[in-house]
Write a protein that binds this DNA or RNA. Structure first.
Length: 477
RNA sequence: UCCUUCUUAGCUCAGUUGGUUAGAGCAUCUGACUGUUAAUCAGAGGGUCGCUGGUUCAAGUCCAGCAGAAGGAGCCA
């Protein structure tokens, strides 16, 4: 007999039907009511055991976490609290779960504790919901680009270039650490390494993405990226997933429109396809807010925030305009900012971005045209000679969720920038070839997938939206 | 990496100016009850107070170092 999923059973009205139910015990109440969960939904189904005619030793084994298989009759529930339940005919314990040592209990656990038992936290409602939403968002990303005719491009995980300079990299080698081969100068001889050169884990697929975009037109990547930065924050990971579209003939305005469209599409998709999960996460947050003082509570609940973000236009302004707003802002005048805004050219700190998004505009913000000195070499120089066609998208509670730009397509300008920033041109000959042969305007951006999942689930620590987080001193499981 | 705070039972937390045998709720175990909704009621067990050293007649409590965690900052996605 084939099993029926809990999700299906809960929506069924086929009373009297014989069904097979398999799942894990969440709670066993009153010696007769088993709350069974099989992961198909965060909701449980109640299975009722005839305890007077069931072996006592079997009943004792119905502990939280045990895997069970039930054949029974789907009936209209006699109790309140649920429409349907399963009247147990035969009950088999597939796998015991020793209640004395199983760490999950039918009670609330702290996220910090669950992080320490990440191999078991899938079994909680919160993480069931989080990873369902994560899946839905990933699926929606592919659907969005597919509908638009983009090509999903797989860029390499192992790379020889650290060209973007996006941060510290993890070295990849098969050399013997205790006794590496040395060259005449006494340095490690990577010519004898697996690839015949020094290699690293990728920090971005952008440069390779540009190569493909200059032929396929519209591409996107969606893969893991690695940064060996010693970042200990609630929004950084050493291993994270990034979505990087790159589009030929797009300028910065097209780029911003694409980014806004993508974000609104995937949030909308989650709202439509993860209603139960988002409602659960919404209630979870509301509970949490109750313990906070009034002035720290958020103005919108999670669902309202998501509906708002997916329907209202993002605020667009230039760096120069943002500086003006910040200069004249109350916290700047009253010297409440840790870093006061005094002159054009200063990098924006988290507190400034947060002020713009959460206090001034109260909506997602697209900031463009930053000073060239605080941005990467490949961004297109504006006619003013001091700003570049960069854009950051800032989200409330998250900060920077997207960073992108229109790329510098003029070979002479690009080479000049690379010289100024000491980027080795010979190593990047293949990148420069796109500008040598049939160069064209193009633009793209990088979307941090986990930051997106953070925003949509309302979780606050990035380590809680990826199954097995990788961060400094953190590589368990 | 820097700043701040924290580390007491399986989990969440109390623990006064340093002072007898370190407490509670939940969980677990035993029993009762049997249409319960994180069931309820009664009872029981459960501790190297993060680690190392120091001050003191006396340290969970004070001091130092180390380790780990949380929040914030920087780097960024």
């Amino acid at each position: 007999m084939k099993r029926t999923k809990v999700k299906e059973l809960l929506n069924s009205t086929a009373y009297g039907a014989e069904i097979k139910l398999q799942g894990w015990v969440r709670t066993f109440r009153n010696n007769q009511f088993i709350a069974v969960n099989d992961g198909s939904t965060i909701n449980n189904i109640q299975a009722v055991v005839d305890f007077q005619n069931t072996d006592e030793a079997t009943l004792k084994r119905l502990t939280t976490g045990a895997a069970i298989s039930i054949i029974g009759e789907l009936i209209e529930s006699m109790g309140k609290g649920q429409k349907v339940e399963v009247k147990v005919k035969t009950l088999e314990i597939l796998g015991d779960s020793d209640a004395e040592i199983f760490p999950l209990q039918p009670k609330k656990h702290s996220l910090e504790f669950l992080r320490e038992i990440a191999h078991l936290r899938f079994r909680t409602n919160t993480f069931n919901a989080v990873f369902k939403v994560r899946h839905a968002l990933a699926f929606a990303v592919h659907q969005f680009f597919n509908e638009k005719g983009f090509v999903y491009l797989h860029t390499p995980i192992i790379t020889a270039s650290d060209a973007e300079g996006a941060g510290e990299m993890f070295r990849v080698t098969s050399l013997d650490f205790d006794n590496p081969p040395r060259d005449e100068a006494g340095k490690v001889d990577f010519k004898q390494d697996f690839f015949g050169k020094s290699t690293n884990l990728t920090v971005s697929g952008q440069l390779e993405g540009e190569l493909a975009a200059m032929a396929l037109g519209e591409i996107y990547t969606f893969g893991p990226t690695f940064r060996a930065e010693n970042s200990n924050t609630t929004r950084h990971l050493a291993e994270f997933w990034m979505i990087e579209p790159e589009v030929a003939f797009n300028d910065l305005e097209d780029n911003a429109a694409l980014a806004e469209g993508l974000l609104q599409y995937v949030i909308q998709y989650a709202l439509e396809n993860c209603a139960d999960e988002l409602e659960f996460l919404n209630n979870r947050l509301l509970e949490e807010e109750k313990s906070k003082p009034m002035d720290e509570r958020s103005e919108m609940d999670l669902l309202t925030k998501l509906r708002f973000a997916s329907t209202s236009d993002f605020e667009r302004l230039t760096y120069t305009e943002a500086i003006e707003i910040l200069k004249n802002s109350t916290p700047n005048k009253k010297k409440k900012f840790k870093y006061l805004i005094e002159h054009w050219g200063a990098d924006l700190q988290s507190e400034h971005e947060r002020y713009l998004v959460e206090k001034h505009f109260k909506k997602p913000v697209i900031l463009t045209d930053y000073p060239k000195d605080i941005k990467s070499f490949y961004m297109r120089l504006n006619d003013d000679g001091k700003t570049v066609r960069a854009m950051d998208i800032l989200f409330p509670g998250i900060g920077e969720i997207i960073g992108g730009s229109q790329r510098e397509e003029r070979l002479d300008y690009l080479e000049k920038r690379m010289d100024e920033m000491h980027i080795p041109k010979d190593e990047l000959y293949w990148y420069l070839d796109t500008r040598r042969f049939g160069t064209a305007p193009h633009a793209g951006f990088g979307l941090g997938f986990e930051r997106l999942v953070l925003f949509v689930t309302g979780m606050t620590n990035i380590r809680d939206v990826i199954p097995f987080p990788r961060a400094p001193k953190t590589a368990e499981f």
